[in-house]
Design a protein around this nucleic acid. Sequence first.
DNA 1: GCTTGGCCATTGTGATCACAAAATCCGCGC
DNA 2: GCGCGGATTTTGTGATCACAATGGCCAAGC
Lengths: 246, 246
Amino acid sequence: MERKDDRVRVKSGLDGGAVAALQPAPPGDARDLGVTAHESVYRRLRERILFGGFLPGGAITLRGLAEALGVSPMPVREAVRRLIAERALAMQDNRRVLVPPMTRAKFEQVLFARRALEPELAARALLRMSRADIEAIAAIDQTIDQTIINGDVDGYTRGNFRFHFTIYGYAEAETLLGLLESIWLQFGPFMRMAYGRIGTSKLEDYHQAAIEAMRRGDEAALRAAIIADIGQGMGFIGDAVLGRVQ
Amino acid sequence: MERKDDRVRVKSGLDGGAVAALQPAPPGDARDLGVTAHESVYRRLRERILFGGFLPGGAITLRGLAEALGVSPMPVREAVRRLIAERALAMQDNRRVLVPPMTRAKFEQVLFARRALEPELAARALLRMSRADIEAIAAIDQTIDQTIINGDVDGYTRGNFRFHFTIYGYAEAETLLGLLESIWLQFGPFMRMAYGRIGTSKLEDYHQAAIEAMRRGDEAALRAAIIADIGQGMGFIGDAVLGRVQ
DNA sequence: GCTTGGCCATTGTGATCACAAAATCCGCGC
DNA sequence: GCGCGGATTTTGTGATCACAATGGCCAAGC
């Protein structure tokens, strides 16, 4: 009993207090309104994978998660199975579930997929965004700048995700967006790890260039800014994580 | 122990014609060797979605599938949830599971994704294929030609899938391949429907051009052949299912 | 005949139990 | 002190049961 809890807590503690612990949803949590238990569990785990810092390679047990989340193992099974299908988690031959490790080959494919999908989604979004929409994106970017100043790694990670996917959401391209979400889930833990290791001081991005391209309605410049942002961010992650990849 | 709930399930039967041909796995089926029940169910459903003809829009019930497959509803739940995560099935707000309908917007995104992923996968495969591998591909294409002559729509559909994914399998790019599999699962039912509606008589493809490009080691020509094949095949499907597609 | 209301079968969801395999632990022998 | 083999615990899997909600069906009323 004691061990089980310990293992969960250890995995969650990537960099101390900045990350909210995995715990049962507060009663009346907005995320749980009219939502099934496994959907709630799925969202919690997904968020944890993207931002929280499940340790890559760390083991995950259904009963352990169920106990930590205050539900029976059943909805956890469904949520975990869904995340496995999205390649966010993996099951090895042992039937043991874990956050799949990053490899150089996988990293390179993630990079290719991002470069193929994200400029396209941004370009499609540009056709459908109002001036107010664009300024909302700019506002998000300002909050990101604040997280950089504050050294808030978790805030930066969340803000960066929100910046990208708020834009892509306007593309009205659910099929392509689904592919991209799977991709982000696959490098999410490593993004968090990289930023956590390097800190926010050296962070720079091409968000401002993207915003100005959107303001001008310049699709080519927007594509270029997104590609530059991907290359810069992924270069960061690659340097931090793959330098010592097994 | 004794099950007191001996409700009459006789008349529940199968849900419409969509699952009519689904049968329990034969004992000792190679697909079930050392494989969990939900994995077996998953493969069977997946194959049916790709080749078999779940009717788009047709309703699917867990208990109906379970009965048709000779298992309890539990492994069906996991298999269906996995297919939903892969976008092969969808759950509407009613919590009813169905084969999602094709829309013009979705079709166009599928086309974009195929054009982005498949030439790349083919090019990567080319670097790793031996001469014998290429001739094995050529042999697959010959069986496809035979299915066209015989008017064997099912055989053509399977052969075409096998032709493409045998090539892409050599690319050693599991991440990209996973994205592409999700894409094929999304248009699979419509591919089958289109070919079934038009028949094999008018079928032509660019497989031969792709094979000769591979024999010459000509990456650019291979990419072009794959792109041409996608355009031709998807044009077929689009015409048959959506009417005219730009 | 057509609409409408209520009854009931059916559905997905979640909890609990049983079981086999895997991992872990523990104590024996060297 | 250190491997090593059996016992024990833990784990994923699958079946069964309970339950609330949705949908379908049929009869009553206009």
